[in-house]
């Protein structure tokens, strides 16, 4: 069995045995290629009451390479309005790019993104949203993001 599959298998068992952190729920993990989570920002934040869905896609390079992670945008879910989140769901977060480390995990990514939302004070899209969304590749990993700041 591939290393990536075994690693994901362990993460899944851990999720099922230990549960997920508060505000994060496993929505589906039908295979070892795509997992979906819901994310809620708890407490008194500008996103209170909103529910988002995160989609993880894995290839055989995981965990050496990061998973492709984006917010789900469909008839049920929208991407949060946030300066680092494009309206197509793509996320500009260094942890998903050059700050990825193979000791991170799916849950660690969920928690990081949850706290990225929690610390946001003003709902706005990235300044280049329209231009980006028009030409964005389907897979956010194919985008070379210039990180807006180094706090995420």
């Amino acid at each position: 069995m591939a290393v990536s599959t075994r690693r994901l298998q362990k993460e899944l068992v851990e999720i099922q045995k230990q549960g997920t952190p508060v505000g994060i729920t496993l929505l589906s993990a039908d295979d070892f290629q795509t997992w979906l989570f819901t994310v809620q920002v708890l407490g008194d934040t500008i996103y209170s009451g909103e529910l988002f869905a995160l989609k993880f896609r894995f290839d055989g390079q995981y965990p050496i390479q990061p998973p492709a992670v984006q917010f789900v945008v469909d008839e049920k879910y929208q991407a949060p309005v946030h300066p680092h989140v494009y309206s197509n769901g793509h996320i500009c977060a260094s942890i998903l790019g050059n700050e990825w480390s193979p000791v991170l995990s799916v849950i660690a990514v969920c928690v990081t993104i949850q706290s990225m939302l929690a610390s946001c004070k003003k709902k706005e899209r990235p300044p280049d949203n329209e231009r980006y969304v028009k030409h964005a590749p389907e897979n956010p990993k194919k985008t070379q993001f210039v990180y807006h700041d180094d706090t995420v």
Binding site: T20, L26, L27, S28, A29, D30, T34
Partner: peptide
């Protein structure tokens, strides 16, 4: 397992 059992709602 209930978090996982409730899965499979969305297909993207």
């Amino acid at each position: 397992s209930n978090s996982a059992a409730a899965s499979g709602i969305i297909v993207i």
